[in-house]
């Protein structure tokens, strides 16, 4: 087991190098000059431009820029953003916010999604099942910003249950509404996934055998159906957690959450290589760790999966 984890962590190294290189290259290849763009409509002063270029190593060839940057990372230095802040500071400020948002969203979609999906699956073809399928289809079809604006308007403006914007240093409770919005689409996916998985498992031979042993539904559903049905759901949750960390851009924008998505979006627009690459690097690391955690979780859910040294 320990050997397996170590091997997986070692495998992460080439992935790490590869992704940072790719991202760095893509930012480098973006059209437009980020330094000129900083001056907006004003005519740039050539001396200032040259000084800025040197400061951000933009006068060096691409590979040298990349190596300088990577060298920094290993010393814990993620570079400096165009606004003069160290990237590490921005990371430290934004990641906890997004992480909190993602965890709340994940909890909501997991608990509600599995519960609703399970009931729908067990009552296949009944009213509850049909209603659930229809609602989940609507949720999947709606763009997230529509859900976000409607939620913001109904719960924030009309009912006044939640604050419409979050802003810097807001308490966790303010994150619940954006988290629900964020969770809504994945919730629909999890409902459908759990439902079909439960239906499939329910028709398997060992479930019939469990009935033939004289067990009641109250035992068979949680013990023999639900546990076996969770494996595909766990796979989905893992990738979704990654998506929540990265793809919250729109929701964070609408609710003005000072999180990763928002910040990354701004950095991409400005062509800030170090900031973009640093954010993506951290995301890649999180993704790798989450995936490892999920693979280990499989082992707990399904004893057939064992790790070869």
């Amino acid at each position: 087991m320990a050997g397996y984890i170590l091997r997986r962590l070692l495998q992460a190294i080439p992935v790490f190098i590869g992704t940072t290189f790719l991202i760095y290259f893509m930012v480098f290849a973006l059209p437009g000059d980020p330094i000129i763009a900083l001056f907006g409509d004003k005519t740039p002063n050539p001396a200032v431009v040259a000084q800025l270029r040197a400061q951000y190593h933009l006068d060096q060839p691409f590979v040298v820029q990349y190596l300088i940057y990577m060298g920094g990372i290993f010393r814990g230095d993620f570079g400096i953003s165009f606004s003069g802040q160290p990237v590490t500071e921005i990371l430290a400020r934004t990641f906890p916010v997004t992480l909190r948002l993602a965890v709340i969203a994940l909890l909501i979609e997991t608990i509600a999604g599995i519960l609703v999906g399970m009931v729908a699956g067990l009552r296949k073809g009944k009213l509850f099942d049909g209603t659930t399928l229809a609602i989940s289809l609507i949720l999947i079809s709606l763009p997230v910003f529509v859900i976000a604006f409607v939620a913001q308007f109904v719960f924030g403006v009309q009912l006044g249950w939640a604050r419409t914007t979050v802003g810097e240093g807001a308490p966790t409770i303010d994150l619940i509404l954006p988290a629900i919005v964020l969770a809504s689409i994945s919730f629909a996916q999890i409902v459908r996934l759990t439902r079909s998985s439960v239906i499939e498992t329910s028709s398997l031979d060992f479930v019939r055998t469990a009935y033939s042993k004289g067990l009641g539904r109250g035992r068979i559903i949680p013990v023999h159906i639900l546990r076996n049905s969770l494996i595909p759901v766990v796979t989905y949750l893992a990738t979704d957690f990654g998506v929540l960390l990265v793809g919250a851009t729109v929701t964070e924008g609408i609710f003005n959450v000072p999180g990763v998505g928002n910040t990354l979006y701004q950095a991409i627009i400005r062509g800030e290589g170090p900031t973009v690459v640093s954010f993506v690097t951290v995301m890649v690391l999180i993704y790798l760790l989450v995936n490892l955690a999920v693979d280990l979780l499989y082992g707990l859910l399904d004893p057939r999966i064992r790790y070869v040294k």
Binding site: L204, D205, F206, R208, T209, A210, S212, K213, V223, H224, R227, N228, L301, D302, P303, R304
Partner: peptide, 14 residues
């Protein structure tokens, strides 16, 4: 009751 296919009649996770 003894079922037909021993491969599929025991729950693999218990």
């Amino acid at each position: 009751f003894v079922p037909q296919d021993p491969m599929s009649n025991l729950n693999p996770v218990w």
